[in-house]
Write a protein that binds this DNA or RNA. Structure first.
Lengths: 410, 410
DNA sequence: GGTGTTTGTAGTTTAATGCAACATATTAAC
DNA sequence: GTTAATATGTTGCATTAAACTACAAACACC
């Protein structure tokens, strides 16, 4: 009932908030001295020292061994600071992606470095939620020695589903799930008591691709994951915009009716299925792959180029429509189909210019080539992000006493 | 260069933040006792007392005279609290809308009550920016006695233009402006040194329509202002989402190509011009008005109903497309054309259901009927909002010493 | 080697919240 | 009508964490 924005700060909260800010700064900038940290946080040098002392005592921060390659450029005058860094293996986070055809798991450390990954084929539609969760949890934990387990500080799940922010899945058409509390199931399946979050796979992908970059892009980034389906995620000023039902950015269902034929949505126009369907009609190969198609486009084979041209046009149309609503200044393409974009960038740009009114700014478009674990990595990052925030369970002692009953007055 | 999110809290900041939180709580809930406030802010009763004491000393808060109509419902036991309230006329804010055909001004007080308004016809396209600003400033100030002037704490401007968050106008096609620093011009034209903000008119309208409601809607609201042009604003969890260039929600430029004929955008399909253009073709009147059209629709005159039907279809299409991207759960229609919606609500709903896949949630649609000063009111609210925040100039003593030069390390 | 500059630390001060106790105002109960 | 119960507002004191001041240490430059 209380607005979180209204909550006041007590003394402990200040310290917590400052410790969190220090951890975030160290994560973002890599290495900082106490004095540099103090400047970034607008704190007094001595306060910075105190905060670092308590973080060091907790084992989260340490003084870096002096192997830093003597940062080039201008020489600094005065006593050099002692560089501080996060202790990467102080804690770790796990992320899993329960996909339609595979399950991926990722372990990341406090520095959001990928420690290990694991991908296994999986037949999503034929397996129950409970079994899928069991499988995913086991995969994620199998390589972790028991002694290390207690240093786990969070478990994230991503899956192609509409879900609310509490991890309650409304619908997962590709997996046949409906109204299952995924986060709850994972919590129960885990042999540990750690924070658990669940998120749509495209949203998780978007988080993973933007999280931990030293420059937080302050603007609007539209993230597109193009495989058979077209997923999308929106990042505003560095943090995920879920929308009212976690469906924000689901651009695949935009209706693009400029195309000839019956009304089709963007997914049906630029997804892998459509490309390969068209390509099979013209290819001379028995079992043409997307790689063959790319090669043909590169070789300027007219039939392939024509398919690619239709793709570029539909993509441009979709992006323009999306930008009219969210006014993105940055678009990042991911997924296997994104490999087509570099070949067609000029055509896409031409279609964008032709489609939208000239007074509108044109967003930058880039291709992101994470591996197949991007979504699982993003799920793990969500928990890293949470750990480096005031909702962190480091401060559970305070947070636990929330939710006391309270009467409202008319 | 510093992330604001990273900035640490010092002692003064705590008090500031708590005073701000107290003011916001009083604004949101109207009247609270010290003890109620303490609960809302999760503070100790005594701390709440201290904060109120200092706000009272500043003249911003007072104990309410006991004319409260004895709140009904359950009787409370124990000593009743002394109700506190904002002092409405402690300070005031001004908002102006520089429109294409009129200039509106609004004065609001600390309780966001409208104290006075003023609307004058205006021929935007034929007047220079400087002259328009002068005119607007003079209109806003004319009714304010000099003695009261120093209690002004902010001046907001709204205008149909693309502008960044600093009030730099990129383009205002309807007014013929390009690359003018509107906020700067207003600052210079004002005889006072007060915070000045400029915002797109649709965005300002959206702020005005949602600000100060006691229940902050935590979700996504899409706001449509339908006149000749179609403006739009998006409110996320109670605060405006501008997009990268302040163009978020400019849904009027969505391309709706399902409609017969050449490719047209939403504005051309559901704007006043199109409706009246079509209506004139069929109406028997010499100078038919929009009111005539509404009456004809209400009377089920086939020619008018057919126009309205096309309108409903295009509107539904636009809303569905927008919701695929921002996942709004609430849509608010404003502007004169919104009066058509109640007559066509069922048709719009039918088209929405026909257009979008059944698995997607359907947003609620409501009509907002603010007067013509909605946008100017919103501009004033922006400054009220700013005053009740940590960026407030009440704390300028601290904020002034920001922006010291700082070197980055590679 | 001296000077100047920046860093890290220790001791002291300041400010704001938390806590506990108490007077006060009202309802409920006898 | 008196007493008990309950919640409010206030007061003095304790606690906490950051700011401030001063100083020794480490390095660059002359």
């Amino acid at each position: 009932m209380n607005d979180p924005a209204l909550t006041a700060s007590s003394h402990r909260r200040i310290r917590q908030s400052n410790e969190v800010a220090a951890l975030r700064a160290l994560h973002q900038f890599g290495r900082l001295s106490r004095a540099e940290l103090a400047r970034k946080l607008r704190l007094n040098r001595s306060s910075s020292g105190h905060i670092i002392a308590s973080l060091t005592a907790d084992g989260l921060v340490r003084e870096a061994i002096e192997d830093s390659p003597e940062q080039p450029g201008y020489a600094r005058v005065g006593r050099p600071g002692i560089m501080l860094e996060l202790v990467p293996d102080a804690i770790f986070f796990l992320g899993v992606e329960i996909g339609v055809e595979h399950i991926s798991t990722v372990e990341i450390d406090l520095g959001t470095n990928i420690v290990s990954t694991n991908v296994e084929p999986f037949d999503g539609p034929s397996i129950s939620v409970e079994a899928a969760v069991d499988r995913a949890v086991n995969m994620a934990l199998q390589s972790i020695p028991a002694s290390k387990l207690e240093r786990c500080e969070g478990f994230g799940v991503s899956t192609p589903a509409q879900m609310d922010k509490h991890g309650l899945v409304r619908l997962a058409p590709l997996l046949g799930w409906r109204n299952v509390h995924l986060a709850e199931l994972v919590r129960n399946a885990l042999p540990l008591r750690v924070p658990v979050l669940a998120e749509n796979d495209a949203n998780a992908f978007a988080i993973g691709a933007t999280y931990g970059r030293s420059e937080v892009h302050s603007g609007v980034t539209l993230f597109l994951v193009m495989e058979s389906g077209i997923g999308g995620g929106i990042i505003i000023d560095g943090s995920l915009f879920r929308g009212a039902n976690g469906l924000a950015g689901e651009i695949g269902h935009l209706i693009i009716s400029d195309a000839p034929g019956p009304r089709r949505n963007l997914e049906q126009l630029i997804g892998l299925e459509n490309i390969m369907g068209e390509y099979r009609k013209t290819s001379t190969l028995d079992h043409p792959t997307f790689g063959n198609f790319l090669a043909d486009v590169q070789d300027r084979l007219p039939s392939a180029v024509s398919i690619a041209e239709q793709w570029a046009k539909a993509l441009a149309m979709g992006l323009v429509q999306a930008c009219r609503i969210i006014d993105a200044d940055q678009i990042v393409l991911g997924g296997s189909v994104a490999a087509l974009y570099p070949l067609m960038a000029a055509r896409v740009a031409a279609h964008i210019h032709a489609t939208q009114e000239s007074s509108f700014p044109v967003p930058s478009i880039t291709v992101n080539d994470e591996g197949t674990v991007g979504s699982a990595f993003g799920a793990a990052c969500m928990l890293h992000q949470r750990y480096l925030s005031l909702e962190s369970q480091r401060f559970a002692g305070e947070a636990a006493e929330l939710e006391e009953p309270e009467e409202d007055e008319g």
